[in-house]
Amino acid sequence: MEELNLFVKSIFIDNMIFAYFLGMCSFLAVSKNVKTAFGLGIAVTFMLVVTMPINYMLDKYVLQPGALSWASDSLANVDLSFLGLIMFIAVIASGTQLVEMAVEKFSPSLYASLGIFLPLIAVNCAILGGALFMQQKEFPNAWTATVYGAGSGIGWLLAIVGLAAIREKIAYSNVPKPLRGIGITFIITGLMGIAFMSFLGIKL
């Protein structure tokens, strides 16, 4: 039950885009049509689900103060937490590389449809941000962290598909000239954010 609450919460209430603005660059750049937006959303969700438990294990058994005590008693006082950032980004970058190679080998059609977005995921802030929030929230086990990753990814997917659908329609509207393109996209995202805030009052 705990996990289900966390899942729903990370999709709607702690939405990566509307509550924390993570992964904004690709969110704005790749939301011109629904199909590519959906592909990128799936890729991001997948990377979050894969990297979250790995980073959780790393954090719990290597990085935290005293985490190395399982190896030997003399290491019990070692605190490696300052290395967190570099470890997480290495996991994410190499994970992206691996996933890219695996997808290319086993499913060339999916590889072709995702194209350049796969390697770009390494620098998507939503994934590193997910890892950092996971560290802050101090989940009890790796399974909870994975659920959190899946929820955040699906929240991101929902947001980008929604924005892409609105942008496809807005092509027919008469927007003031200086606002066309990126300006109006910012305003739409802002309004969507306000709409998502109505979930804030929900207690789970």
Binding site: F18, K177, P178, L179, G183, G190, M197
Partner: peptide, 26 residues
């Protein structure tokens, strides 16, 4: 609240593009 940041940036973009017409999208 977070969403107003987006709208503030949008207004800055609006002013900036209105002053630099060569940056506008068609």
């Amino acid at each position: 609240l977070p969403p107003m940041a987006l709208i503030t940036v949008a207004c800055i973009i609006w002013v900036h593009r209105a002053r630099n017409p060569e940056l506008m999208d068609n």
